[in-house]
Amino acid sequence: MTSLTETQQQSQATLAHEGEHPDYRMFGLATFLVADGMTFAGFFAAYLTYKTVNPIAPDSSYELELALPTLNTILLLVSSATFHRAGKALRIGNSKLCQRWLIITSTLGLAFLTSQMVEYFTLPFGLTDNLYASTFYAVTGFHGLHVTLGTIMILIVWWQSRSPDGRINKTNQFPLEAAELYWHFVDGIWVILFIIFYLL
């Protein structure tokens, strides 16, 4: 929020339209994530429909190993917890601790992406091999894109919270909280994805 002295300097008229109200940003973000979730819901619905009505051709291969994805699930779940820790640290004003947790979280995110890459390269099928392969790559790829964005966001938050008087601190937690909400969302999607694509 702009302070009153600044208000007097600027035109009141412009101010009426300049300020993005911080209190509503989390609400806006949450609404956006609902929308984003619907994109995934569409993909999942498509995949499940394919599964029920389009039998896989006998000569095409679509086999998924469980080990790596299970590891991925654990990585992401742990990262959700570590992010939560980072937020807690920021709220008590401990930027150092917050930063440490952020680094751990982003490392976990990177580990997830690496292991996802490893899985991609070891799978016996390619993007255009068959319907299932295509859907698998499209959806995990779309999710991976989200993880990549999330990791970048974490690094930005980390950069901006280096000192207690940096951009992100005890009084301005919004960027961190936004990134955290987003990260939890991406985790949640992964869990559903894991169940639908690997377990079912």
Binding site: V34, A35, D36, M38, T39, A41, G42, S134, A138
Partner: peptide, 17 residues
């Protein structure tokens, strides 16, 4: 809008693939 448009977006991305 918020609940349905993203589904169209996803679908069109698949179509473009």
């Amino acid at each position: 809008v918020v609940l349905s448009t993203p589904v169209l977006a996803g679908t069109l991305v698949l179509l473009s693939f």
